[in-house]
Design a protein around this nucleic acid. Structure first.
Lengths: 186, 186
DNA sequence: CAGTATATGGTACGACTGTTTCAATAACGA
DNA sequence: TCGTTATTGAAACAGTCGTACCATATACTG
């Protein structure tokens, strides 16, 4: 009885909305232009997502999901040395195809700092990409509970990404990672 | 003849507006609340700054100016070793009093990535704080034109600041800097 | 066909935005 | 006091925002 629901529609919209946010950023996001770009209406966006806040939350979750799966697919094998894995992760994160994701991470991080109330746990969720990465090389440590070396390695990655995204100087940032790998060798 | 201009007013407003932006962030900034907090009116803000864009530009320039002078004041002596200066800069940048500045830097960086058109040169100007820091230890290099080690050191700083501002884990980030200093020793 | 639940379009509301317009006030020199 | 210039308030303008309301269309069951 009654017209059957179409749950696929929400998913389709979510996917395209995520593309849109990755392309245009979160900052000036508003329903009407978004809906226009997605061949739908603000009415339907709220019908599927209840409110803009929940839509954004869903988009961030989706972006995070994508990043996670994309990463595990292109992960270097467990057998590789820590240095090889470090280089692989840098290559993966700094690739131009990842620029949108990186941009979104920085945006959520910055907005979360100024307005933590908007990110009950999503800020951590997005920023958690980095943690996910950190977990991929639990070695390269000096001992069993050495959380310091992974922290440092992730900081190098984040910092170089910051540099690369602002200056675009790939050669210099690549060389800086090389230098870090050198330092890391015993 | 005629009433004399009062250029001090603009400066006073700029100073207080900068405080406000440092406290509340750039994201949701709008003239009416800002004016209310500054005991003035949106009318006067535009009278002094022509437009919101130029006001924001002026605020960013002022913030940068403050950061630069604050830094040179607390700079470690030239005679100190690179490691000592590195530690001093980290202590300075990661101090709680600098949290607002750091937050603003990340915010401008993120917004500049998504909307470069809004930052003809100001993005560089703000982000340039880091470059200023980098210039303070031109040694710790392996040679005369080694730009790589400063790049790496700045990346460590940026990355650890990112970590510290999100997780608040000062102990772990401090230890990570210690570890980096160890690695840096020959 | 009627009944029913889902999916839409259209529209309007109230609140906000940056900015402008018009008028009034304030401080000076002559 | 008058002219002149700087300063300020109040209000309005044109636009956008998220969202709610109401009607209609669509797709199914019986």
């Amino acid at each position: 009885m009654g017209r059957p629901p179409d749950p696929a529609r929400r998913e389709r919209t979510l996917a395209r909305a995520t593309d849109y946010v990755l392309a245009h950023g979160l900052a000036g996001l508003s329903l009407r232009p978004l809906a226009a770009a997605l061949d739908t209406s603000p009415r339907m966006l709220l019908y599927d997502f209840e409110s803009k806040q929940e839509l954004v939350a869903a988009v961030l979750a989706e972006a995070r999901r994508r990043g996670a799966t994309r990463l595990t697919e292109n992960l270097p094998p467990k057998t590789a040395s820590p240095e090889e894995r470090l280089r692989a992760i840098w290559a993966w994160m700094s690739a131009p195809e990842r620029a949108s994701y990186v941009r979104l991470i920085f945006e959520v991080h910055a907005d979360g700092l100024a307005h933590p109330e908007n990110y009950p746990d999503q800020a951590e969720a997005i920023t958690g990409w980095f943690d996910t990465l950190g977990a991929t090389f639990p070695d390269a440590t000096t001992g069993p509970d050495d959380t310091v070396t992974p922290t440092l390695a992730m900081a190098v990655m984040r910092g170089l990404l910051f540099d690369l995204t602002t200056t675009g100087d790939r050669r210099r940032t690549d060389l800086a990672l090389d230098r870090f790998c050198e330092l890391l060798r015993p």
